[in-house]
Nucleic acid binder design. Structure first.
Length: 274
DNA sequence: ACACGATCCTGACTGC
DNA sequence: TGCAGTCAGGATCGTG
């Protein structure tokens, strides 16, 4: 479900409600997620106030005085607020109860997500392991171009790996490449400065547009307030095999790259042979 | 050293 | 209607 825009939407909703609230109880109902949840470590947050909620790549960090309660939503995870009296729904694996009668529930049918604790000391190392944020001021066409020079593999694989630019998942990688008119298979090291510039612009544009439209609700993503996103109605490539290209009406094609479905217009995004 | 496939899961959808 | 097969928004690990 969630790529950067969906995670950011959750953050923006929870931020004004939860900052300043005190975490009074943690209940882990299913410890076996992508990694086993360490309840002892999470207990560092108990009894303390949330100071801020930040997003790093696709991770959500709830800042407490002694460290960070971190969520990764995997493919099907979601976080939302309910009344603590409300009966549990299927796949609600964790509950965080705050004062003012607030229950933050983590639901994740596929259990590919993670919940873990990061001490203040561990945060810098963790942040370094992630790529640059898409809107990082140091990310300009020239530095993006230089970073991509190091990768002799398809640009779409490089985007998904997240080591150059963080938070771009399969949907938005497909969309950004379509807007930038770049074939997903093009070797990252072969992109020109002009193409890199166009791609960087497209990534930022697609991500911010998705946030503005409430994200993508393909199957089950809903805003914590219960509303669905509608960015999926604006896809120009993703899941549009056989449908006409938005620019030239040529049918969109589909290939598999790094095990992920990749959609492109064969005319607007020509494959480059060398 | 790097690239790739397999893998962790459940649910929704398709076609017979 | 039922059932088998396919596919899915991510990230890590082992293998070649």
């Amino acid at each position: 479900m969630p790529e950067l825009p969906e995670v950011e939407i959750i953050r923006l909703f929870l931020l004004p409600v939860l900052v300043g609230k005190t975490l009074v109880h943690i209940s882990i109902r299913e410890r076996k997620l992508r990694t086993v949840v360490d309840e002892h470590a999470l207990a560092h947050a108990s009894g303390h106030q949330i100071q801020d909620i930040q997003r790093l790549a696709k991770y959500l960090l709830f800042d407490f005085p002694s460290g960070h309660l971190v969520f990764h939503l995997g493919m099907s995870g979601n976080l939302y607020l309910v009344d603590p009296q409300k009966a549990y729904e299927r796949h609600e694996h964790a509950e965080f109860i705050f004062d003012h009668n607030l229950s933050l529930r983590y639901r994740d049918p596929r259990r590919f997500g993670r919940i873990f604790w990061l001490s203040q000391k561990q945060l810098p190392q963790f942040a370094l392991s992630l790529g640059k944020e898409p809107w990082d001021a140091s990310l300009i066409p020239e530095t993006f171009y230089q970073a991509l020079q190091r990768y002799d593999k398809p640009i779409k694989n490089v985007l998904l790996a997240g080591s150059v630019i963080a938070g771009v998942g399969n949907i938005y990688a497909n969309e950004a490449l379509a807007y930038a008119h770049i074939h997903p298979k093009t070797s990252a090291s072969l992109l020109s400065l002009t193409q890199c510039s166009r791609l960087l612009y497209s990534i930022r544009q697609v991500l911010s547009d998705a946030i503005a439209k409430g994200g993508s609700s393909i199957q089950d993503f809903t805003h914590p307030n219960g509303q669905k996103g509608y960015f999926q109605n604006y896809y120009i490539a993703y899941r549009r095999k056989g449908f006409p290209c938005a620019f030239c009406s040529t049918p969109i094609e589909k290939i598999v790259l790094a095990g992920r479905s990749s959609f492109f217009c064969p005319k607007c995004q020509p494959e480059i042979f060398f």
